[in-house]
């Protein structure tokens, strides 16, 4: 019995400290906060995704690449849209795992990476050929680092919130994004266009959606404690 109780206590301590470990602000917890769940949908007939013929390094890169600048799923859900709570405050979450950006098959994985400010991002080269990480940013210093085949990991961090474009000049089709935030209240949509932002303090908020080709959309929401708030963004080609 005592054993069972001890395990119970340990589990309780862990459960309570989990939010701390995940870096979520202590003021905001499950009881006093709500969540935002939503979908990003394409309005109209989505254009066919661009297909790029690969003309070099075919062994590592394959013969064709499908552009990820606009990915629309079967139910018209748009992937790789980032939804953030505007003006949110709160310490940047300290993730249990380092954010990782992999270059695999001459392709940035994931296409859009969320990263907290000041946290090291591991940039991997799984391809065994030369890539270069070339960032385009204003708030953070831009850099352009070579990553030859033997350089498996480069670690970089961004100290200011910004949407940073990354490119590999050696493979012109390779492009990706790192969205750096100083608060935890943002999320990227998945293949179905769904996203979820947890632990949002109750009250009125302004949401902002960013998509690399469809631009920015703002929306007002009211979050109630203990309940998910549903939001749908409908986007169309400008």
């Amino acid at each position: 019995m005592q054993r069972v109780l001890r395990w119970f206590f340990i589990a309780g301590v862990l459960a309570l400290s989990l939010p701390f470990l995940a870096g979520i602000s202590p003021e905001v917890n499950a009881q006093s906060s709500g969540s935002i769940v939503g979908e990003v949908k394409y309005n109209g007939t989505p254009p066919a995704p661009k297909v790029i013929k690969v003309n070099k390094d075919n062994q590592a890169c394959g013969n064709e690449k499908t552009s990820e600048e606009l990915v629309v799923g079967a139910n018209k859900g748009i992937q790789w849209a980032v939804v953030s709570v505007v003006g949110a405050k709160g310490p940047a979450p300290k993730p249990a795992q380092k954010p990782t950006l992999d270059q695999k098959g001459c392709h940035f994985q994931p296409h859009v990476l969320l990263a907290p400010v000041g946290v090291g991002i591991d940039i991997l080269n799984s391809d065994g050929i030369l890539h270069n990480i070339h960032t385009f940013s204003k708030a953070n210093p831009s850099f352009n680092k070579a990553q030859p085949k033997f350089k498996k990991v480069i670690t970089e961090k961004f100290d200011k919130p910004e949407v940073v474009k990354i490119r590999c000049d050696a493979h012109s089709w390779m492009s990706g994004w790192v969205v750096v935030q100083e608060h935890p209240f943002y999320a990227v949509s998945d293949a179905n266009g769904s996203f979820k932002i947890d632990n949002v303090p109750p009250g009125k908020h302004k949401l902002e959606l960013w998509h690399e080709t469809l631009g920015k959309v703002a929306k007002d929401v009211e979050v109630k404690a203990g309940a998910p708030t549903k939001v749908t963004f409908e986007l169309t080609k400008k």
Binding site: N132, I133, H134, S142, F143, N144, K145, A146, Q147, P148, F150, K151, I154, D169, A170
Partner: peptide, 16 residues
């Protein structure tokens, strides 16, 4: 250092 503004990347930490 590479050449800022161009695709030429920095190799200082990327040679053996």
């Amino acid at each position: 250092t590479g050449l800022a503004g161009t695709p030429m990347p920095s190799f200082l930490d990327s040679v053996e």
